[in-house]
Amino acid sequence: MRIQGLLMAIPTIFFSFLLLYLVIWNLYFSFTNWSLLNPHPSFVGFQTYASLLYMEYFSISLSHSILLSVGTVVFGNLLGLLFASLLYFLGNEKMRSIYLSLLIYPLSISMAANSLIWLWLFNIHIGINWLLRLLHLPVPLWLSSPSTEFPSLMVVVIWAYAGLSLIFYLAAFMGVDKSLIEAARIDRANPLRILFRVLLPNSMNGFIVSSALLFLFSFRIFSPPYLLSGGPTNIFLQTSVVYMYYLFTTEYFAQASAVATIITAIATAVVIPYALYGIKRWMKHE
């Protein structure tokens, strides 16, 4: 390896290691008792983690995060699969790419702006409920009732990220040898049979990618729960990321670091296998 090539990579390696430093810093301070009350932290081992287990907010917010991610993975996959199938069987390529753009544009808009618009749409008097009443459909209370608050958040996140899943399923479908589909048509298979017997079994890659990215993207969203809830203390919408931000603003630094470390660990558990056994392997196969 020549030195010049290494030099060219130095900036990226520098910033990557800085990230590693930040992660390790969190890990280190999560073993201390640093807070507003203890400005001179001392090493306390797992005590901070143990204290978290007794905090109701911690487990509620973590379960919200996991529920949100799992929900996004499940519904995002279902919708993405549905959309991808609808678009795949569309004969017209131009129409397909127009519809594709119209279904994935939410990915390009800031989640903060999205959340603001949805706040209005969730207004129980003049929001989408106005339309639902016109159509004689049931009208949920959305953000105005504790029982529908979290599902409302889910609606926003799934609306924003279903396109992600759509893209990967569509890409996987397009990668399936076209003559397989033609052979199946000649063999009198209807579109549903082609979808479930030919397209899907040969598109497992799309499923893995879509699930991994839906999980990672929804696990780290901040502005929708933060903005839809009106503040970090709303227990019904608090996710781990929001909770950590709350601990930081109230200066429970060690606890915030511990929560940050847990979040990082969960994300890492998905990222590393995905990077090494997914992306890296596909790169080699090119």
Partner: peptide, 26 residues
């Protein structure tokens, strides 16, 4: 190469909010 690849992947996908305290401090 595997190590660096994992690292840049982590930096891409990590919930960056988790670095809140050390990053602000830095």
């Amino acid at each position: 190469s595997n190590f660096l690849f994992s690292l840049i992947s982590l930096a891409t996908f990590i919930p960056y909010q988790a670095t809140l305290i050390p990053l602000t401090k830095l």
